[in-house]
Every structure is written in C-alpha cells, then in structure tokens.
C-alpha cells in the first residue's frame, strides 16, 4: 500500500543498526515483508436496541515489518476494535486480517497485546505475571525466571519481582504488562491506548522508555491512541481515523530522525508542523475529543 518507512529511513542513513542487520541477512535487495495486512475489513455491532452499528467500514491497511504505526482517532472511531481484530480477539464481520500472509483466526503469541487497563493477573506477583508467557510456551521454569528477571530489570522494576500488581502504581503496572508481553517474543506489539490511564508525567516517561526499548529490536508496533502528540512522537506512520462509521481518513508518514529525544523534538519545527497539520485535519472534519 505504501513504501516501507524502514527502507526509506535506512536509505537516509537514519537507522544504521537496522540497515546493517538487513545487509547481513540479505545482501540483495529484499522485498518488504508485510507483517500485517488488513483487507477490506468491516465490523458491525448490534446495539442494545437491536440496530446495526457500523463500527468499521471497509478498512484496508498494511503494516510493514519493523514499523511503528499509530492509529489515531476520536473515541468511538473503532480504532481499538481494529486492534482486537488483528489480535484475533474479535472476528471481523467482513474482510480478512492477515499476519505474514496467514489469515488471523484467533489470538496467538506472535501478536502481543498491551491494554490500557493493564490486565495483569492479580493473583500473580510481578515475576509470576512476566513468567506466564514463557511458561505457556514450554520454557523451563529456571530459564523462564532468568529471562523474566532480565525483562523486569529492562523495564526498570528491578527489586519489585515479588510485589503484587495492587502494590504498584499505574505506570509500574503498565511496565509489568509490557514486560509480560515482551516475554513471549511476539513479532507484533498491539498497544491499545497503553498510556491513556496514566498522569501526564508518567505518560511522558513511559513514552520515552517505550521508544528506547523499541530501538533495541524494532518490533512491529501497532499503537492505538487519541493523542496527536503521542502518535507523532512515537510513530513512523500515523493512520488517522474518523468515526461513524470508522474509516481511515488519511495515512501520514512521519519523517523525523531516530532515535528521537522528546526534548529535542518539541523544539523541532518539523515535529510541530506534523502535530498542527494533523490537528487541523481533525478540526476541519469537526471531530472533537482529540487530545492536543
């Protein structure tokens, strides 16, 4: 559907580590892998008054391997539903979603969700939560524990291994949720407004930390948000959606250098222009409920 951002960025020599990796893996020009393809997907819900409500209307979208793509839109535009369809949690009414060319029929460890509500297992400690995935994948207990401890340290929660989720703040819970998902090595991270329930300060810190973690292995990320700044700051590509019915309004490539530093970016006129342009586009359409 569109050119790979990764390759574009690589050709601009902005992402040396990735282009090095690619050169090793495939010396010849390698065709872009479409990690996720959403193909003419529509979703109809029945409302309580038994009327059909078109939540998603004919959505087609391709997400390339290693891309950070945000889905941005007002509440009720179906952006979370779209994520749940990719996750395999919800079956689309029409159309298909594919992962590496295979139709998605249910959840699987190749697609790891991170929810706004954290959804940690309250009966398990931090370590127990993070170890859950590897144990389900058949990793031996000792090995799963070692991996999990390393991940907990990576998300900045060393020393909290034996705490229960109820003893942690919202930001810490979301770090645990991220570690729990990363623990089973999904090829794609599906993030459903992961920082939406956090205060502004915590939110900023987690955005920075997420980018730092993402820079290490460049997993494909599909990130749902209603914050324009968050979408521009994090993404290679912003998919703007409108509601009633939920459709893709426009897809915008974010050509900002990586690794990104928030403090530098805020002063960068290119960043400011992206934010303002996107906000104007939503304004013109009369969509409210977007965060500046």
């Amino acid at each position: 559907m569109f050119v790979s951002d990764v390759e574009k960025a690589a050709s601009m020599n902005l992402m040396p580590s990735r282009s090095d990796l690619k050169a090793e893996a495939a010396p010849a020009a390698k065709p872009t892998i479409a990690m996720i393809e959403i193909d003419h997907v529509s979703q109809v819900f029945q409302t309580s008054s038994r009327q059909d409500h078109l939540a998603l209307s004919d959505i087609s979208l391709t997400v390339d391997d290693g891309a950070f793509v945000s889905i941005l839109g007002p509440s009720g535009c179906g952006k979370s539903t779209l994520l749940y369809i990719v996750g395999g949690f919800v079956a689309p009414t029409r159309g298909t979603a594919r992962m590496k060319g295979n139709p998605i029929t249910g959840p699987g460890p190749d697609r790891g969700p991170v929810f706004q509500e954290f959804a940690l297992f309250p009966w398990k400690s931090v370590l127990g939560n993070v170890m859950y995935g590897p144990r389900q994948q058949g990793v031996k207990a000792a090995e799963a524990e070692a991996q999990s401890r390393a991940l907990i340290e990576m998300v900045g929660l060393k020393g909290f291994e034996h705490f229960y989720p109820k003893e942690l703040s919202g930001g810490m819970k979301q770090r645990v949720a991220l570690a729990r998902t990363l623990a089973y090595h999904p090829a794609v991270l599906l993030m459903d407004e992961p920082f939406g329930a956090l205060d502004a300060h915590t939110r900023t810190r987690l955005q920075n930390d997420l980018l730092n973690i993402w820079e290490r292995d460049r997993k494909t990320v599909l990130f749902v948000t209603h914050s324009v700044e968050e979408a521009v700051f994090l993404s290679d590509k912003v998919v703007m959606m409108s509601r009633s019915p939920g459709r893709i309004r426009q897809i915008i490539d974010i050509d900002l250098p990586r690794p990104r530093r928030r403090t530098e970016l805020l002063l960068d006129p290119r960043y400011q222009k992206y934010v303002v342009d996107i906000e104007r586009m939503f304004d013109d359409a009369g969509d409210d409920e977007l965060q500046p």
Partner: peptide
Amino acid sequence: VEQKLIWSAMAAGTPPREILFKVILPGAA
C-alpha cells in the same frame, strides 16, 4: 472475570480449554 485477562492469557499461548483453570477460576476466587 475481566475479558482482557482472558485475552492476555490466550495471546500468551494458553489454549482455550485451559483458560478455565488458569484464568477464570483464580479470577473468580
């Protein structure tokens, strides 16, 4: 029991028939 707990377990690779004892029973405790 919170739907997203079940989804989280399924995404981590828990087969549907094990969800009952791994998520629903402890979640309903």
